[in-house]
Amino acid sequence: MTTATSTTPSTAIETVRLRSVSKVYGSAAGTVTALDAMTVSFLAGTFTAVMGPSGSGKSTLLHCAAGLDRPTGGEVTIDGTELGPLDETALTLLRRERIGFVFQSFNLVSALTAEQNVALPLRLAGIRPRDAEVRAALAEVGLAQRAGHRPGELSGGERQRVAIARALITRPAVLFADEPTGALDSAASREVLRLLRDLTDHRGQTVIMVTHDPVAASRADRVLLLADGRVVDEFTAGAPAGEDRSGGSGGGPGPAPAERGLSPELIAARMAVLEASC
């Protein structure tokens, strides 16, 4: 069920590819190697969870992969474009068009309404957002009724869903999420996770999510375990997602985690081993 290294089928498209990417933070107090020559790929249409002990480099991986931060070594390719040679503006344009983000908090501009927040990336691209499009995006995350509310008037889960709607409005090649459920209660978490899962299932959206929660990770197609800036373990759902589902509850929207072959208990056990070893 688990493999030590990822064996990539040659037919699949690598939406995000990191080749021996390193990130070293230097400060007066000494240097920290957050990423240690990491090589990893993320296939189009897959949902990947990244786990690992605190400080293992999960956020750094996400930032480097998403072009938010520049690695100190190696190369990052998104949707066929290598990020290294791009200048700040080109990188911004690429992010705007190809990448969506959701973070644990601080996701929304507090002065703007939900609708305006969702439309922001389009406006930034100089596109006049069509009302219907924005409404549809909000409806998709179940917030059609809250379009005119400011972030201060929304619950944490609702805010997170607005952030997801905004991240998807430009139809990005990949959606990055750093602990999107970290600040939510279990019901709100479930709602957000269901949303992410559906995106991969129905739209073929590539999703890369950092999480501490084994339950959240169990919804993914593949789990990467990080320690000290390296991928130390990796496991995928036993069968390809589509097949697994059709053999399950007969086309129901969200198959139960247990049926997918990635059980939270298993993930939790692996994590415990990892945490004990470092």
Binding site: L68, T89, R96, E97, L120, L124
Partner: peptide
Amino acid sequence: RREFGLLRLVGAAPRQ
């Protein structure tokens, strides 16, 4: 700063 960072995050170029 945080707000501007967020705008940059969702795709605002420095010029914007």
